[in-house]
Design a protein around this nucleic acid. Structure first.
Lengths: 199, 199, 199, 199
DNA sequence: GATGAATGAGAGTTCATTCAT
DNA sequence: TATGAATGAACTCTCATTCAT
């Protein structure tokens, strides 16, 4: 009982990787299948469409990002404002290591995807908006706790906008790192995040 | 002397528009030709490749952005720090108007393009990096003048990083606006830019 | 004893319906399965091939046509020549009602199928030829009885050809009704059938 | 000036032939291309879609049928009612010869196509309805002239229905010939056509 | 200087079918 | 008895590009 093969998971992971490295439209279904070791005719047994696979890949990456990146960086035992720095540091570590090995800085898989959205991709747009809101929630919680601890001289009602500003900055930093193909940008800009927090 | 043909210009303008609305890979050469009213066979008389057209379109949009958006916002007669706010306000005005008319918020044509870059698109990546550096120069000049006027309590050597942080924030704000399809985000986040400047 | 499963019957009935509405090649096995509520993997437990299902569907429809359409129209108590008229009237009633409900006139499931036959479909061709011969037998019996009753001024040996002419006319009428998507054509042409009978 | 290649014509002729022999859905675009000697990627330069090619093929066959079959059979110098017989004879000659050479009787390309029409094929249905009306016009003209010459004891207003009955019979005869794969059926049923004419 | 005609490669998707359980 | 999983081949169609004129 249970699953006979892990082809579906391989498809999801491979898709995310290729889409992140190239882009949604640049990678073909057959390329994903080949890399995932799935027979070409089998793809549509697992997924009704390429878009549906992309949705699943985004969700998978989101869960993974929470476990590997966001939850550790935003752990309760870390002082609230330090959590923000931790996130940028963790992201820097990932991209710096990757750049050393693969020569290319990828930026944020979610943010990069946003640029490709067209009118027909409403489902993808909604998914990405949802994920970005999820990231914002981490910042928001940290800001609230920092404010409660008296570390922030800002009003409570300002917090949502500041959390969003942090998401914008986070995405912008990774966008620049991808554009310049240089992970150091992330390190350089890390200390500036706290300015948006109001520290 | 003078223009040999305006077909080339029409191709460039149409390409930028379609790429901005959809994405580089989502729009085809023939779609651009049709919309530009250029005969399909003529495309490769004007441009050696689709990538080359994209390069020209980015350069065109960059010059246009300078004239319409950056130069007015960063005019010398405007107090240095206010220039930054002016830029965000001008961008907001543009996207809010467009959203009213066309229902879709496009974000930054340059930033959106970054997400699509693959390994093969080195020329495009370099062009985008150059343009983003060009935007940074505007912020840098304003920060320098603000510092010289004593409006900024920061050290001169910090200025380049702060300028880059402003570019990151600017791109991130437009990325969020595109993802949420909501121009109001630009307005909401505009005041936060100055925090990165060090005001 | 009794039915082992009604899945097979549902497949047959659904197949006939879909093939009649669209065409043999336009409907897929999976579409039939879905509509019949049969699990996709089960199809080939019940039928060795799609062609075999089509054969079964044709036989099913043939038995149904005899019971519902031909036997009542050609009942012994009805005067022989009137039986022919009755058939056309019954067919008209069916198609007129269906057109009112579903907007589309289907024509004859057997006749429509003939147009799709290719070289590889010998089994289907033979089945359809057999069914068309079965229809002819009804006309033949009626013509014989009409001749025996002195209602027809024709020689006995002419009867087979006339019966076939009636089948041709019957199929042609339904073909036109499908082509024009108009059941009224059946009513308009009904009285002309008797001319072929020799009345 | 003028055409560079006759690929488009070859595509049309090949398509008609293959569709007639098999069926619209049974023949693929690539099969048509291969047989027509057209490079696979070129098809969609000549035709926007497979359906559009089918439309062109039907129109081509219709013009050909008029020139080769209908106009000669319905020539003015032939006595009106004899024209009808001539048509059936000419059709018989064609199919009998073809059966000798290729073993298969094709029936009417138009009539066979009707059976394949689904809900999505409205353009094809309309085209076929138009062609069948065109055939009816030939019968109608002949009936009118026969009536004018006093050869027909029927009222003028009956003529349209009779002409349609003749089309139905004509199509039905060819349908039977295809179903039984026997051109002799056409010869056998030829004399019965005049009964519908009212002779 | 400019273009109509043509193309090979590959896109996403559906097909009838198989098979281990 | 019945089925979920899987598949190779084929589908219609689009792609960026070439080239003779």
């Amino acid at each position: 009982m249970g699953r006979v093969s892990d082809a579906k998971d391989r498809l999801i992971e491979t898709a995310l990787q290729l889409i992140w490295e190239e882009s949604y439209r640049a990678v073909g279904v057959s390329e994903i299948c080949k890399k995932a070791g799935v027979k070409p005719g089998s793809f549509y047994y697992f997924f009704p469409s390429k878009e549906n696979l992309a949705l699943a890949a985004l969700e998978h990456h989101w869960q993974e990002a929470r476990q590997i990146l966001l939850n550790p960086s935003f752990a309760d035992e870390i002082p609230p404002l330090e959590r923000i720095t931790r996130l940028f540091q963790a992201v820097y570590a990932f991209h710096a290591a990757r750049q050393r090995k693969k020569q290319r800085v990828l930026g944020c898989a979610f943010g990069s995807f946003v640029g490709e959205l067209g009118e027909e991709d409403e489902a993808l747009r909604a998914k990405l908006a949802e994920i970005l809101a999820g990231i914002r929630a981490y910042f928001e919680k940290a800001l609230k706790q920092a404010a409660a601890a008296g570390k922030l001289g800002i009003k409570t009602k300002e917090i949502p906008a500041r959390a969003r500003a942090l998401v914008a900055f986070y995405e912008g930093v990774l966008l620049l790192a991808r554009a310049q193909n240089d992970a150091e940008i992330i390190r350089q800009l890390t200390p500036h995040a706290l300015k948006l927090a109001g520290a």
